[in-house]
Amino acid sequence: MRILISNDDGISAPGIVALAKVAQELGDVYVVAPDRQRSASSHGMSLHHTLYVDTVDFPVSGVEAFSVTGTPVDCVKWGIYHYSQQSVSFDVMLSGINAGYNLATDVLYSGTVAAAGEASLQGIPAIALSLGGASQFDFDSAAKSFRNIANELLRISLPADTFLSVNFPAEMPAGNVWRATQLGARSFQDEFIPVTDDAGRIGYRYGGEALTEVEASDTDTACVRAGDISVSPLRYRFTNTEFLDSLKLKISSVLK
């Protein structure tokens, strides 16, 4: 099995190292990740910037690794293209392990989720992995938990446009449970904190806190609050099909 790994925390992040270690037990691992922190880059691409790629001395023996001066999506696209020139194709793509949850509407902003989504768009089964926490993240435990169920997850036949988003609770007690979930409802109380640079110019740093609504027990947010591991099937399909027929009627009536 050939496994492509990327993330949005950067190639030096401990989460990607922990993931690569356990992925080696599953097959041949190839790492292509951003050269620095790229969180919340969503599905962005560097269309107007030259990408520079460097070989990296990755701290997992036997793993070929490249850093890219771009977004997670750039990394996945470049990785698939680069290896295709060597007649190497991938059986699965793993993204993470991210430092922080990617729950509910987080998936719209997450570079971790976008990397897996891009692989899925290119026909490669993909899984994004994220770990809850504030300042301390037990990546090794999350990676071990993933390894325990990886063979079963990878045997799941996903629809062509579908990939998985896994969220590990911040604290994972022994015997934790994996549950299939839908996206929950989580918004943020936005805050922009003023900061002054060395030149005296005032700027703003985004802050705020998550607001979780009361919701069903089968959501990703409720799942991790209960201390279980959430697995949500995602896909890029934005058309509101339930409203489409109604919109057609409204437009046709206007044009008469």
Rank of each mutant, 00 (worst) to 15 (best):
G123Y: 02
L164G: 01
R2E: 07
A115M: 05
S232H: 03
L153N: 05
R225G: 01
V177F: 11
N151P: 05
K77V: 15
T55A: 14
Y81I: 09
S130V: 01
R179F: 02
R205T: 14
C75R: 03
L154C: 12
V195A: 02
P59N: 10
K77E: 13
E191L: 11
E25R: 04
Y83L: 04
V254K: 10
F58L: 03
C223Y: 00
G123P: 04
R38V: 12
L255W: 05
S67W: 01
S42D: 11
I149G: 04
A104T: 06
D228P: 00
A23D: 06
A226K: 11
R237F: 15
C75S: 06
G79Q: 01
Y204S: 13
E64M: 06
R235T: 12
Q122D: 10
R179E: 10
L121W: 08
V68R: 03
L234K: 12
A20G: 05
W178I: 04
T105A: 13
T105W: 07
L131A: 04
D28G: 05
R38N: 10
G70T: 10
N167D: 07
D57E: 13
G133M: 11
P72R: 04
A116Q: 04
G132S: 01
K250E: 15
Y101C: 01
A185E: 09
Y109K: 10
A128R: 00
F163Y: 14
Y83I: 02
M45H: 05
L108F: 12
A33C: 08
S253A: 15
A150P: 03
F139W: 04
I251Q: 08
A216E: 12
I3M: 07
Q182H: 10
K256A: 12
L153T: 04
S46I: 11
D190Y: 00
F188K: 04
S46M: 11
N98V: 06
I3R: 02
S141H: 08
S12V: 05
S110R: 05
L4H: 03
C223I: 00
G111M: 02
N98S: 14
S6P: 00
G227T: 09
F58Y: 15
S61H: 09
L154N: 02
E152L: 11
P59H: 10
Q182T: 12
G207Q: 09
F192D: 07
L153S: 07
S39F: 06
T196S: 06
E242L: 14
D28V: 13
L108P: 00
A160V: 14
Y204M: 14
S120M: 15
L249H: 07
N98F: 08
E213A: 15
V254Y: 09
T239G: 08
D140E: 14
S252V: 10
G227A: 10
L51H: 10
S135T: 13
N7L: 08
F168T: 08
T112R: 07
V76A: 01
Q86K: 13
S246V: 13
V177W: 07
G184K: 01
E152T: 12
D91M: 09
T196G: 03
F146V: 07
M93Y: 07
A40M: 13
A33G: 03
L183P: 07
Q182M: 09
K77I: 13
P169S: 07
A119S: 12
F188D: 01
S141A: 14
L129K: 01
S39H: 04
L154H: 04
D8W: 03
G70V: 10
D74L: 00
A114T: 05
L247R: 05
T212A: 09
I229V: 15
P159V: 13
V224R: 08
